[in-house]
């Protein structure tokens, strides 16, 4: 579903991503681990066509993101690190707007409320302004947008950053549900624990290079941390 082939990005002389090759299949939860500046966000930006690759290509469901940007965006849902919505509108109004832009169809109030509740948002919060939402609640609206979009792929950038353990756990369960329904998930994260709990594959990035990639089931929590720290200290 999400494929990177020799994906490269240079900003001037700085090589932000160096010949990345990865594949995220339907049902996979691929966790990209790495320090700040490792190239995780650049990878995401390339899949979303926010920047164009210097070399190589990114594909979504077989379509090149640069050649078919709108087609690819129809199939992807994106949840940024900080889900900032329109603060003067309610959660429901925000979802309505993004869902309609995402799908080109109109949604009933009932269906929108359903998406929000399925995302874990309390029903009594749907008509409150976003300015009164916590980070976790806004994150849930972001997931609700992904649900409403019926996206085949989900890209998340540091989704559990700033979430308390309970919210983080709820989030992980949501991801697993989506994964079980066949959505391909690519997640950039620092959270080793959550990556082991939720992920099916892990890729470790350093200085724009994917230095190691393996199945989550092949390692334990301690081993994962050890591998990660070994790469970071090189």
């Amino acid at each position: 579903m999400l494929v990177a082939k020799d994906l490269t990005k240079k900003y001037g002389e700085h090589l932000a991503l160096d010949r990345l090759n990865l594949a995220v299949l339907p049902g996979d939860v691929y966790c990209l681990l790495g320090a700040n500046g490792a190239g995780k966000t650049t990878t995401i930006n390339l899949f979303l066509n926010f920047v164009e690759p210097t070399a190589g290509a990114a594909f979504v469901d077989g379509s090149n993101v640069v050649e078919h940007p709108l087609e690819c965006k129809r199939r992807i849902a994106y949840v940024p690190e900080t889900v900032l919505l329109y603060k003067n509108l309610t959660g429901l109004e925000n979802l309505k707007f993004f869902a309609e832009i995402a799908t080109g169809t109109t949604f009933t109030r009932a269906s929108l409320v359903d998406y929000l509740v399925r995302s874990g948002l309390p029903e009594d919060a749907v008509d409150r302004r976003i300015s009164g939402y916590s980070k976790g609640m806004r994150q849930k609206v972001g997931i609700a947008i992904a649900l409403a979009k019926s996206a085949k792929a989900l890209i998340l950038d540091e989704p559990t950053s700033g979430l308390d353990p309970k919210a983080s756990n709820e989030f992980s369960r949501l991801l697993l549900d989506l994964s079980e329904s066949g959505v391909a998930i690519l997640m950039a994260t620092h959270d080793l624990f959550r990556a082991k709990e939720t992920g099916t594959r892990i890729g470790i990035m350093k200085s724009g290079v994917l230095v190691q990639s393996f199945a989550t089931s092949d390692v334990g929590h301690t081993e994962l941390e050890s591998i990660y720290l070994d790469h970071m200290s090189d």
Binding site: K73, Y86, I101
Partner: peptide, 14 residues
């Protein structure tokens, strides 16, 4: 500046 641009441009809209 409000942080909604990324979410908006990830949608299928020119």
């Amino acid at each position: 500046e409000a942080g909604t641009f990324g979410l908006l441009m990830s949608q299928p809209i020119r």
